[in-house]
């Protein structure tokens, strides 16, 4: 949420920033180690910077220093070349990212990576092919029906998880009395694991009956 508000807040102050010569010329805007290099002034410096970024001097172009959102000192403006722009059949050094060794990296390179879903919006149509959707759903529903059938079946020896526990004991046979008979007519004798002549169980001590 803070990020939503930060940009317009900065925009409000852009006139102040520009009046003082832009962020590159303003003290305290950048952390010292992150501060971009000074823009090349002379032709000699332009040539030096171009070589530094692997470009011919005539291709070398910097961002507008007053564009404080993009200006990155002497880093070159390489334009926008997306992954989709690049020829898949070329012998790239890195075929996955379609990059050559030491190829200059555009400033917004991360926005146009190969894992981006679509560049044109046309590819997304392919996933809505009704036939494909039907096949996918059929497989999913078949698997779910199979799982449900297995776990709903009452077959005693089927494989499932199971607790090592006998059914709960009741003093009356409610099943036998159901529906209209009186369960008191069908008492069940259940046993604890204590011997018959042992003293009273301490567990049953906290009742007050």
């Amino acid at each position: 949420m803070t990020g939503v508000f930060r940009v317009p807040t900065r925009s409000l102050h852009s006139s102040t920033v520009l009046a003082r010569g832009g962020p590159l010329r303003m003290d305290g805007w950048w952390v010292r180690d992150h501060r971009p290099a000074r823009l090349p002034q002379s032709a000699e410096e332009r040539k030096k910077s171009a070589l530094r970024y692997g470009l011919r001097p005539e291709d070398y172009k910097t961002y507008d220093p007053d564009d404080y959102k993009q200006s990155t000192g002497d880093y070159p403006d390489l334009g926008t070349t997306t992954f989709a722009h690049k020829d898949p059949n070329e012998a790239w050094s890195d075929r996955r990212f379609r990059r050559n060794w030491a190829e200059p990296v555009p400033l917004h390179y991360e926005r146009y990576r190969p894992d981006r879903i679509t560049y044109t919006g046309i590819e997304s149509e392919e996933s809505h092919d009704p036939k494909q959707v039907f096949i996918g759903l059929s497989i999913m529903v078949a698997i779910m029906v199979g799982i449900t059938y297995h776990f709903m079946s009452t077959a005693p020896n089927k494989w499932t998880w199971k607790n090592p526990m006998m059914p709960k004991q009741y003093p009356y046979d409610f099943y036998r009395a159901w529906p209209w008979n009186d369960p008191r007519k069908f008492p069940i004798v259940n046993y604890t694991f204590e011997s018959a002549n042992a003293e009273d169980d301490h567990h049953h001590g906290h009742g007050h009956h």
């Binding site: 259940n190 604890t192 011997s195 018959a196 002549n197």
Partner: peptide
């Protein structure tokens, strides 16, 4: 020795 019966209170 037999088992103690469960008691319905």
């Amino acid at each position: 020795e037999g088992r103690k019966e469960r008691k319905m209170v």
